[in-house]
């Protein structure tokens, strides 16, 4: 796992037959070309996501044509639309079910901050309150090109990513994000972490 700059030089007679790269780079190269988004439409932006997958913008060119409805077969969650409080538990549950390494794109104003509906009572103020977000796309809705631009931004990010930094390959158990519950309002357990641990109910909630 060395950096690209520190690779040994290839003798001139072998150039063209041998290529040296780092494991990180190889991994990033493979991942860039096989990122599978989840078929997960929330609201208006979902239609622009579908348009991006359709014949005009055709994200199959990036190896992403297989939009999997099952989170277990996907590694990119495009939060395409408004995350309402009622939907928040399901969004987090789907995210937790995705295999690592996984990425989240917040598409559109609603997913970023709640957008036009932020001031209302039923909308989460941005999906990053619930999940770690990798790329944000402003716009309402962003054009399909903007979504593709976000994919490219994500690809650019892979190149700087090192396997040892990816959480999934590190030691320890990852519980995932605690799934919020519906009380008198949305209950985010992280807010009540010490309390819940004391009560020993954390497991019950995460299950």
């Amino acid at each position: 796992m060395r950096d690209v700059e520190n690779l040994p030089e290839i003798p001139p007679e072998l150039q063209g037959t041998v290529k040296l790269t780092t494991f990180d780079q190889l991994f990033a190269w493979a991942r860039k070309r096989s990122l599978w988004p989840m078929l997960f439409g929330l609201a208006c932006c979902a239609f622009e996501m579908i348009a991006a997958a359709a014949s005009r913008y055709d994200i199959a060119r990036f190896g992403m044509e297989i939009m999997r409805p099952s989170p277990r077969q996907a590694d990119l969650l495009i939060v395409s639309g408004t995350v309402t409080k009622k939907m928040a538990p399901q969004v987090v549950r789907l995210y937790n079910q995705m295999p690592e390494p996984k990425y989240v794109i917040a598409m559109g104003a609603c997913a970023i901050s709640g957008g036009p509906f932020k001031e209302g009572y039923a909308v989460v103020s941005g999906v990053d309150k619930l999940l770690p977000v990798d790329v944000y796309i402003p716009g309402c809705p962003p054009r399909p090109e903007a979504l593709i631009h976000a994919f490219l931004a994500l690809h650019a990010r892979f190149e700087h990513e090192r396997i040892r930094d990816i959480k999934a390959y590190q030691k320890g158990v990852d519980d995932g994000v605690p799934i919020p519950a519906l009380g008198p309002d949305l209950v985010d357990w992280r807010r009540f972490e010490p309390l819940m641990e004391a009560a020993g109910e954390k497991e019950a909630v995460h299950g």
Binding site: I112, S113, G126, D128, V133, D134, V135, Y136, I137, P138, G139, P142, R143, E145, A146, H149, A150, A153, R157
Partner: peptide
């Protein structure tokens, strides 16, 4: 201009 994707919350 539509290419505004960013790594941080706008």
């Amino acid at each position: 201009e539509y290419e505004n994707a960013s790594y941080t919350r706008p």
